[in-house]
Amino acid sequence: MATAHPPSSALEATSAERYQGLRMFMANKAALFGAVLMAIILFVSYILPAIFTDDKFAYAGKRHLAPFSENGPFFGTDYLGRGVGLIVMHGGSTTLEVAGFAALLIVTVGAVVGALAGFYGGIVDRALMKVTEFFQVLPGLLFALVVVALFGASTITIVLAIGIISWPPVARQTRSEFLRQKNLEYVKAARSIGASNARIILRTILPNTLPVLIVQATLTMGAAILFEAGLAFLGLGDPESLSWGYYVGLNRQYFLVNWWGVTFPGFMVFITVLSLSLIGDGIQDAINPKLRGR
């Protein structure tokens, strides 16, 4: 796959690299499958609700716990007579947005802590790593339960609770990446022309750490979806927006007569996390083919 001529500019070089990465991603069948799955999930969560604009809470006149085959496109009704399919498609955006914001928070906090620890080393590193260790030993779900119980179950508290507890692995990864790059030639070069620490962190090392962070963000979002689903299943979700996990929790008591009410939303969580894992692994392989199959 050697190109005929050497790239004539940095831009050409990076775009060639990106193209190469994209090719590898597309060639990776598992990753492609993940991407297709994600497209379907986004379609169900954002396009379908725009088509079926029925009020998701409208249960008047419908039969309670109608079987799977009834109620047209909505696959049966739940214990209140609401269309199961309708609620599941509306629940998607809630789940994805909570997890998306949480992932953003996790990667941001993790990247800042990891960058500072890795770049400055010494006492800064040791102090920050102790803090990281502290948050790593707190049992995540239980901590989030306490926070949400104390501060109330709003989207913001849920995002914060998930974010506060989940950043340590990202911080560790970023730290080791910074430690590795700190002594490489291009960082030394930047230092030798008098670049400030802030400039080296932000303009020299961070861009090279970005691919790692993107992979982390993808995988973290999967974990955040599971986290949100667990919290919501225990009843700590926003009752207005009915995320997938919350809906499983609501239908749990009726699962003997209404198995689709629990299996459907749970299945959505499952394939969303699966697709994010596949995409994350695909990006990882595209960035670093050597680690493939590990």
Partner: peptide
């Protein structure tokens, strides 16, 4: 990958069923 992606409570409910 599948083991990681299955929500625990969902696995549990499926096993119960």
């Amino acid at each position: 990958l599948i083991g990681f992606a299955m929500p625990v409570f969902w696995t549990g409910i499926l096993l119960v069923l």
